[in-house]
Design a protein around this nucleic acid. Structure first.
Length: 117
DNA sequence: TAATTGACCGATC
DNA sequence: AGATCGGCCAATT
């Protein structure tokens, strides 16, 4: 297990029930900006017994990224619905169900303060 | 060794 | 709304 996978899974593990985030957002929050594909690879390689809530990660714009007709896609949608997330036409409304780690805002705030000198 | 692929993304037209 | 493009890069072919 390398550090990238660990930091990525740590971010995914923080996504609360009933909320979703995106591959790109996870990558950014994990310290690997523009590495959305890395997030997809890591989640795709999760062992079967993992407790990581991979189903709360969707593609940009709220699209379900898994291939249509795949077992994993159906599982993701049913799990999301089970926790109260509306999924219609293979999409989730990020304005209602999107989630971002508070740490991002804190970092932004710290940066802004630092820029004043 | 080279080319292709993919659970991606944002900008641009 | 859909298509293209460049960025990204490890795994697979």
């Amino acid at each position: 297990m390398n550090g990238a996978a660990e930091s990525i899974l740590a971010v995914v593990a923080r996504v609360p029930r009933g909320k979703v985030t995106t591959y790109g957002a996870v990558a950014e929050q994990a310290g690997w900006p523009r590495r959305a594909r890395l997030v997809g690879r890591v989640l795709g390689a999760l062992p079967a017994g993992s407790h990581v809530p991979w189903h709360r990660v969707v593609a940009a714009g709220g699209r379900i990224a898994l291939p249509e007709g795949s077992r994993a896609r159906e599982k993701q949608m049913s799990r999301l619905r089970q926790e109260g997330v509306d999924v219609s036409a293979g999409r989730v409304d990020l304005r209602r169900f999107g989630w971002r780690s508070p740490a991002v805002d804190l970092d932004a705030w710290l940066w802004r303060v630092g820029d004043e000198n």
